[in-house]
Structure formats: structure tokens, C-alpha cells
């Protein structure tokens, strides 16, 4: 290859790099649009571990519950953090009711919410929960590593957390996972 041709090629190199970069960025943006890629998504430290110890008061008329009660109840189960003030929580309520109808055990934890507000929320949207506890100061949520509501944790038959789902849950997303971890 003569010098001129090589120089031409070298001149094209930065352009090629920029082109490749834009293809990658385009793909990322496209995936962000469809929701298959979320740069804010955090890996949960709880996956593969048991639930952190907690014992929370109930949202009347429901009794509260603790981590040991979740583990003693029907498994696999879901633990769902929600709040009346959170929009995606409203969005996922129909899905949770659908899951309840299929016999999925969902433990609800009202995150930093007022008793009355939670009660009104459950009245309006339906109550898909096995029991509802209140995490008024959000300390239990911090021990879960929660960084937003809603968040849902899947606990398998051995009481091990297998999945953390951040955002509005869908039955289509969680049912295969439940089956994978022994739900029938």
C-alpha cells in the first residue's frame, strides 16, 4: 500500500470510530425507549440471600409481619413495597390483583405512607396483599436496599431472595420467574 492510500485510510479511522460509537448509542437509546435497557437499574445485594430481619406493624385491619413469618408462609412469595403517593404503584395494582387471583402470595409493605392514605389507596385500587405492613420511616426498606417504589422481591421455597423487580410489576414478567422458582 502506498503512503497516500494509507494516509487516506488513517484519515477515515476516526470517522469509523465515531460511526461505530453512534451505532452503539443509537442502540442504547432505542432500548431505553422500549424499556429493555434502563441505565438507572441497580443490582440488588439481596439476591441470593435471605430477607433482612424486620418486624413491622400492620396496616389495619391487616396484622403486621416479620421476615420469619414470610418464610413460614406459602412459598415462593412476593414482597412488594408500595406507596399511595407513587404513580407506578397505581399502574401495577391491576397486575397485582391479577396475580392474587392466580393464587400468588404477595406481602405488601407501605413505604413512608400515612395510615389513612394507604387505607384509601387499598380501598380504591383493591387489596391484592396477603398482609399489609407499614414501614413508616423507611428503615426496613433501606435494609432491603430499596431505591424507589414500587419494588418487588421474589422469595423462593428456601426463603432465598431470587429477584428484585424495580418499577411497576407485570404478571407477564413475574409469572415465568415464579414458576422457575417452584411456584405451581
Amino acid at each position: 500500500m502506498d503512503t497516500i492510500a494509507r494516509r487516506r485510510l488513517l484519515m477515515l479511522a476516526p470517522l469509523a470510530v465515531a460511526g461505530a460509537g453512534s451505532v452503539v448509542f443509537w442502540e442504547l437509546l432505542a432500548r431505553m425507549q422500549t424499556g429493555s435497557y434502563d441505565p438507572h437499574l441497580l443490582k440488588s445485594m439481596l439476591v441470593g440471600k435471605h430477607l433482612p430481619a424486620f418486624s413491622l406493624p400492620g396496616q389495619p385491619p391487616s396484622a403486621g409481619f416479620s421476615n420469619t413469618e414470610v418464610n413460614a408462609g406459602p412459598l415462593p412469595a412476593l414482597v412488594n413495597f408500595f406507596a399511595s403517593w407513587c404513580i407506578p404503584c397505581v399502574e401495577e395494582m391491576n397486575e397485582l390483583m391479577h396475580l392474587k387471583a392466580q393464587g400468588v402470595t404477595i406481602w405488601g409493605i407501605a413505604y413512608k405512607d400515612k395510615i389513612d392514605a394507604t387505607a384509601a389507596f387499598l380501598m380504591r385500587r383493591g387489596d391484592p396483599y396477603h398482609r399489609v405492613a407499614r414501614d413508616a420511616d423507611g428503615r426496613t426498606a433501606i435494609n432491603f436496599g430499596l431505591y424507589g417504589v414500587p419494588e418487588t422481591y421474589l422469595i423462593d421455597r428456601t426463603g432465598t431472595v431470587r429477584l428484585r423487580y424495580a418499577g411497576a410489576l407485570t404478571a407477564a414478567a413475574i409469572l415465568p420467574e415464579l414458576r422457575k422458582w417452584g411456584w405451581t
Binding site: G35, D38, H40, W85, C86, I87, P88, C89, E91, Y147, G148, V149, P150, A166, G167, A168
Partner: peptide, 13 residues
Amino acid sequence: DVIGMGWWGGREG
């Protein structure tokens, strides 16, 4: 405080 707005609610609007 995006938590209040629903952190994951971005795709609705």
C-alpha cells in the same frame, strides 16, 4: 425527589 413522582414512571407520559 423522583421517588415521589414514581422513579420508573417515565414511560407513561
